[in-house]
């Protein structure tokens, strides 16, 4: 890599979050140009409301991708958590929420055991667990639930309520989680170890770290965050059906990639992912405004991920 390219790389790397925010603002500007007056407090409120579940889902994904893995079961877990929360809520909302979160923890535990102890490739392990979760959920819904469960009022408020007219309630939850993640990744031993494992597992082992403990915990954290995202999403759309969050699997990975976290592991941040989730949500809003059919939206999503990933790889390069 030439020194100029290296310098560019460093600038982009240190300021990637600014580039991303600029992109976000540009997209909002585009909306304003297309439909003057569209960008108002109400619009911002809506964007934040819809970005929150994706942002939380992508938070778990970020944790796993930093370690060099990937979790393809996040969407299934989110769906299952929301469904089970809703179906258990009639016996008590707390019971419902705990049951939903438990789904995430248990699936995360199994994923973690597979990846960390049995050394199964994360892609395969989480793919298979996704199947197990969805299959089990289908069976559960047939056997135990008579009708599509409704979402309890508390969750509905959490997902789509607002404070001071414009500030979504879910934003508070998202902000707290984001703060914990951003600070935790930088300033705790556990965060350090995630980056270390993603960078070089062997080196981490030689430094005396028992990597399996870290990975296992991390997959559980990812499962828990996925469950939270599912519950929030159920509140946002005010429904908990059997395919609630499934469309969010690919966006959860896309938000991480757009946010600049290396899919090889070892670098990245949650702040990037959070902006990535916002960009995806705004992009969706732009495309909806332009009356772009869903099909074209998908094609564009795909193309954008390819371009961004290629750009990151080119600029940041792995020598």
């Amino acid at each position: 890599m030439s020194s100029r390219a290296a310098a560019t790389a460093r600038i982009v790397q240190q300021n990637s979050i600014i580039v991303l925010i600029a992109l976000l603002v540009a997209l909002a500007g585009l909306i304003e140009v297309i439909r003057p007056g569209a960008v108002n407090a109400n619009w911002v409120s809506n964007i934040l409301e819809f970005a929150a579940p994706l942002g939380i889902l992508a938070a778990g994904q970020t944790l796993v991708v930093i370690t060099g893995g990937i979790d393809l079961s996040v969407a299934n877990v989110a769906t299952a958590a929301a469904y089970i929360m809703a179906s258990q809520a009639p016996f008590g909302v707390t019971r419902g929420i705990v049951a939903g979160l438990l789904v995430g923890v248990v699936v995360g535990l199994v994923n973690g055991v597979g990846v960390a102890v049995f050394r199964v490739q994360p892609l395969i392990m989480t793919l298979a667990m996704g199947l197990v979760v969805t299959g089990t959920l289908n069976v559960y819904s047939q056997a135990a639930v008579r009708s599509v469960p409704g979402v309890p009022a508390v969750i509905h408020t959490l997902g789509s309520g607002t404070v001071l007219e414009y500030v979504p309630v879910s934003l508070f939850l998202w902000a707290v989680l984001a703060a914990v993640l951003i600070i935790g990744l930088r300033g705790t031993g556990f965060g350090r170890l995630l980056y270390a494992l993603g960078d070089n597992q062997e080196a981490t082992r030689l430094a005396g770290v028992r990597g399996w403990q870290v990975l296992l915990t991390n997959y559980m954290a990812c499962g828990l965050l996925s469950a939270v995202a599912g519950i929030v999403l159920a509140g946002t759309v005010n429904a908990a059906d059997l395919s609630l969050a499934n469309i969010l699997l690919l966006p959860s990975v896309a938000a991480v990639v757009i946010g600049g976290t290396s899919i090889f592991g070892g670098s990245g941040s949650y702040s990037g992912t959070a902006v990535g989730a916002l960009i995806l949500t705004v992009l969706n809003s732009v495309l909806t405004l332009l009356d772009v059919p869903d099909a074209v939206k998908q094609v564009l999503y795909g193309a954008i991920i390819v371009l961004l990933a290629a750009a990151y790889t080119r600029v940041l390069g792995r020598d």
Binding site: R192, Y195, A196, D199, A203, T204, A207, G266, S267
Partner: peptide, 14 residues
């Protein structure tokens, strides 16, 4: 033994 993408400090502090 090293984390190539991480800082000198993080490497030493591992």
């Amino acid at each position: 033994a090293l984390l190539r993408q991480r800082s000198v400090r993080e490497n030493i502090a591992l």
